[in-house]
Design a protein around this nucleic acid. Structure first.
Length: 213
DNA sequence: CAATCGATTGGCT
DNA sequence: GCCAATCGATTGC
């Protein structure tokens, strides 16, 4: 855990976005249930330079407050009816972050299916709004720490991706160079990556190195 | 089985 | 008013 905090304090947001792939993300719900999975798809947001970031140009609105806090602060925002999960990656006052786009569910799958109103398989968590719903995350985690709150990363349980692919981010048209920069990172071959062709899926290992399964 | 469309909510300019 | 992720429905291959 200290090693991970050190990583957040010394590396770039792009490096952290890749480092987070394979991390074990665990949510202890209000009734003491553990819902968890491995992070398989992330995006880096490089505010205030990044035109696609909420914090572009150091914009500072009530919703953005958490983005100006210390590394590891959880930043949640709503999109239509969906909550989207992000975390702060740079020192306090420097509003950069990583968005979690998908996880591979591990613990509490039945409860996650219930949270997702009966959806199963990759539909459980192959999108940013979907994984938040599956894990039962609600907005009172806003501003808490991803290192030690009911929603936390457990680095001891992480897996290692066999290969990381980088892609342009989703849903940011007309943002100049920021539209095309490959700031999205994913575990190559993992089935929970959204909008993926079936033939690209690694059905055996899900894109993880074999030794630490 | 893939691509496309319309409806939805809330924060911000 | 503009912008977004998801879902269900529909159409195309």
């Amino acid at each position: 855990m200290n090693k991970m905090i050190h990583f957040f304090n010394t590396k770039s947001t792009e490096e952290i976005a890749q480092y987070l792939l394979g991390m074990y993300l665990e949510h202890e719900t209000e009734n003491g249930m553990i819902l968890s999975g491995y992070i398989v798809d992330t995006e880096a947001y490089l505010g205030p330079e990044d035109e696609a970031a909420h914090s572009f140009g150091m914009r500072d609105t009530p919703r953005l407050k958490a983005m100006y806090e210390k590394p590891g602060t959880i930043y949640l925002y709503t999109m239509h009816t969906h909550l989207i999960l992000n975390m702060v990656t740079q020192e306090k006052g420097k509003p950069q972050g990583v968005m979690i786009r998908a996880i591979e569910p591990i613990e509490g799958i039945e409860k996650m299916e219930e949270n997702r109103r009966g959806r199963k398989g990759i539909e459980l968590s192959n999108g940013p709004g979907k994984l938040v719903a599956a894990l039962g995350i609600n907005s009172n985690l806003y501003g808490q720490s991803i290192f030690d709150s009911r929603l936390r990363i457990v680095p001891e349980k992480r897996k290692t991706p066999k290969k990381i692919i980088s892609l342009p981010r989703i849903g940011i048209p007309n943002k100049g160079i920021w539209t095309d920069l490959p700031l999205r990172y994913a575990v190559s071959g993992n089935p929970y990556i959204s909008k993926q062709r079936r033939s690209d899926i690694d059905q055996k290992a899900f894109g993880w190195k074999e030794e630490n399964k």
